[in-house]
Simulated scan of single mutants.
Amino acid sequence: MKVMIVDDELPARERLSSLLESMDDCQVVATASNGIQAVRLAQEQEPDIVLMDIRMPGMDGLEAARHIADMATPPAVIFVTAYEEHAFEAFETHAVGYLLKPVRRERLQEALDQARRPNRAQIGHLRNPATGGKKQARGHICARVRGNLELIPLECVHYFQADQKYVTVRHDGGEVLIEESLKALEEEFADGFLRIHRNALVARDRFGAMEKNAQGGFEVVLKHTAERLEVSRRHVAQVRRFLKSL
Rank of each mutant, 00 (worst) to 15 (best):
K2D: 09
V3T: 13
D7Q: 07
D7V: 09
D7S: 10
L10P: 15
P11K: 06
M23G: 05
M23N: 04
D24G: 13
C26P: 13
Q27G: 01
Q27T: 15
V28N: 09
V28I: 08
N34W: 03
A38Y: 04
R40N: 13
Q43A: 10
Q43L: 03
E44P: 12
D48F: 01
L51S: 07
M52Q: 02
R55I: 02
L62H: 04
E63A: 05
E63W: 02
A64D: 03
A64N: 10
I68H: 08
I68G: 06
A72Y: 04
A76E: 00
F79Q: 01
T81Q: 05
E85K: 15
F88P: 03
F91P: 10
E92Q: 14
T93D: 10
A95W: 00
L99M: 05
R104F: 00
R104T: 03
L108V: 06
A111V: 10
L112F: 08
D113Y: 02
N119T: 11
N119K: 08
R120N: 12
R120I: 00
G124F: 02
N128A: 14
P129N: 07
G133S: 14
K134S: 10
K135Q: 14
Q136K: 11
G139Y: 01
A143D: 05
R144T: 15
R146Y: 08
R146T: 07
G147T: 01
N148Y: 06
N148I: 01
I152T: 05
L154P: 06
V157D: 06
H158A: 11
H171R: 01
K183F: 04
L185H: 08
E186K: 14
E186M: 11
E187S: 14
E188G: 12
A190N: 10
D191I: 01
R195M: 05
H197D: 05
L201Q: 06
L201Y: 06
D205Y: 10
F207N: 06
F207M: 11
M210G: 11
A214Q: 11
G217Q: 10
G217R: 07
V221F: 04
H224C: 07
H224W: 03
L229V: 13
V231F: 11
R233K: 15
V236S: 10
A237N: 13
V239G: 09
L243G: 08
S245Q: 15
L246D: 05
